[in-house]
Every structure is written in structure tokens, then in C-alpha cells.
């Protein structure tokens, strides 16, 4: 049934730290690598080596320039994937029941054998988290690596989503956001974690941690300042050379 299953006590999800993400795309690549061989149809690419390649990926990393009033701009690397929303609009619009949210752990999944590939769920998602697979013609999305996190054939340290396992700067954290005492919930509380587009009313489970405040400095044109510094009179040997050359001409 594509009606939402009621509130799940357990809400598995990710906490993404925008302060420490370095934009290396390791999470993107490891996600593609795991999920092309894991749950459901492979994540195919079309025309992969041609002029106009396109392919299904479940995780994308943007970079934004953020400019506080009167201060220097800063760069924020920004991973974007399914937020496993409590009020997931992608689930309720699905005409076949292929798109569903699990009551047991809150994960939003697609039953690919039922999906008719109409694309309406992707239209309903504000976050662009769903991509149609060009080969299987079914909707693909983040499964929170449902085939890793409960997989007893894997060593315990590997039972977390591939993106979390791959992150070299510990910018991604996995856990139960429904438990207020879980590590991820405490992290969200301590760092002021926030929702993306709360005005869309989707109540995302995944949270984002804001970049820590930077040392406040007046906005300056560093380039011009650097050039100006180069015109100052040097000291020591270079100063003597400078003066000597001045005398010569």
C-alpha cells in the first residue's frame, strides 16, 4: 500500500556534516559500486564513453558558495541523496504500491517488480533523490544499503551504508534518528542539525550539520592586497639590491 505506514519508532537515516565534507565524491562512487551489484537492477549508464553520457546515481555532491553579509564567501560541499522522509510524497503518489516506506525502520524503498516507470515519484520529490534507470526502466533510489546494514555475512564494521563506510573525512554518520539517545541524534542536537526545504512538509529523517562558524573577517579583495604587498620595499639583501637597481636606472 502506498499510504504511509504511520509513524515508525525506528528511523534509520544519515547525518551529513557540511563542515567536514571535502567534496571528494568517494561516497558517490562507493554508492554506485555497491548498488550496481546489490539490491535490485544494476545502476546502468548509457553512452558512458560517448559525447553525451548519462547514468543513474543515488548520491550527488554539489558545491555551493555561501556569502555571509559583509564577509568573505565560503565553499560548502553538499552531498544530496534520499532523506527517507517521514511524510514521503514519493510514496503516496505512486499508483502501483511499488514505492513504500517500511514501518520497521523507516527506510523508503521501491519494489522494482511492481514499478511501471511512470516517474511521478521523482516529480513529487523536492530533493531530486530518485533517478530512472535507463536500462531497467524502473525508478532507482537510495536504499540506505538495506542489503548491507542487516547483512550478517559482512563483518560488523561493514554493516553500514557504503557511502558512510567510504567517507574519508567522517562527514557521514548512520544511525537511528528515532532514538533521541542515539549517537546520531545527540550529534544533531549538539551541532544544530537541520532539515532541507522544511517548507515542503516532507519531514526528512536525514539531517544536515551546518558548517562551523568561520573566523569573522572583513571582506577584502585578497588578490589586490597581495599585489599591493609585492610593491612594498623589501628589506635585507633584496632591499640592497632594490636600492642598487634604483640607482642604476
Amino acid at each position: 500500500m502506498t499510504c504511509l505506514p504511520g509513524t515508525s519508532a525506528k528511523k534509520l537515516g544519515l547525518v551529513i556534516d557540511l563542515d567536514t565534507c571535502v567534496g571528494c565524491h568517494a561516497c558517490v562512487v562507493s554508492c554506485k559500486e555497491w548498488n550496481t551489484g546489490g539490491y535490485g537492477a544494476p545502476l546502468s549508464d548509457q553512452n558512458a564513453y560517448g559525447a553525451d553520457p548519462v547514468g543513474a546515481w543515488l548520491n550527488r555532491v554539489h558545491a555551493y558558495e555561501v556569502t555571509p553579509a559583509g564577509q568573505d564567501a565560503q565553499i560548502v560541499h553538499f552531498p544530496r541523496s534520499c532523506l527517507h522522509c517521514d511524510d514521503a510524497p514519493c510514496v503516496t503518489v505512486c499508483p502501483t504500491g511499488a514505492s513504500y516506506k517500511r514501518l520497521a525502520d523507516g527506510i523508503v524503498l521501491v519494489d522494482e517488480d511492481w514499478c511501471i516507470g511512470c516517474g511521478l515519484c521523482a516529480w513529487a520529490c523536492p530533493y531530486g533523490a530518485r533517478e530512472m534507470d535507463g536500462q531497467a526502466n524502473v525508478m532507482k533510489k537510495c536504499t540506505l544499503c538495506v542489503d548491507r546494514i542487516y547483512n550478517e555475512n559482512l563483518p560488523e564494521e561493514d554493516r553500514e551504508p557504503a557511502c558512510v563506510r567510504a567517507c574519508p573525512s567522517r562527514a557521514r554518520h548512520f544511525g537511528d534518528l528515532g532514538d533521541p539517545q542515539s549517537e546520531v541524534s545527540l550529534l544533531v542536537l549538539a551541532r544544530g542539525g537541520f532539515d532541507l526545504m522544511p517548507e515542503q512538509g516532507t519531514r526528512p529523517v536525514n539531517k544536515y550539520l551546518p558548517p562551523r562558524p568561520k573566523q569573522a573577517r572583513e571582506a577584502t579583495d585578497r588578490g589586490a592586497a597581495g599585489v599591493a604587498a609585492g610593491h612594498e620595499r623589501p628589506e635585507g639583501f633584496l632591499g640592497w639590491l632594490d636600492r642598487a637597481l634604483d640607482k642604476l636606472g
Binding site: 557540511l18 567534496g23 558517490v28 553525451d52 553520457p53 548519462v54 547514468g55 543513474a56 546515481w57 550527488r60 555532491v61 554539489h62 558545491a63 555551493y64 558558495e65 555561501v66 556569502t67 555571509p68 553579509a69 564577509q71 564567501a73 565560503q74 565553499i75 560548502v76 553538499f78 544530496r80 521523482a122 533517478e131 530512472m132 535507463g134 537541520f194 532539515d195 532541507l196 544536515y208 551546518p210 558548517p211
Partner: peptide
């Protein structure tokens, strides 16, 4: 969610080619 810091401008696209 970065509006809490300042004005936001997209700097780098996550992919060099098109996507679905």
C-alpha cells in the same frame, strides 16, 4: 539550508554531463 549563513550560489555541478 545554508541560508542561515548567507546568500547561496551554486558553484560546482555534481556531474559534468546531463542526468535524468
Amino acid at each position: 539550508g545554508l541560508g542561515r549563513i548567507g546568500a547561496v550560489r551554486a558553484l560546482l555541478s555534481p556531474h559534468t554531463a546531463d542526468n535524468w
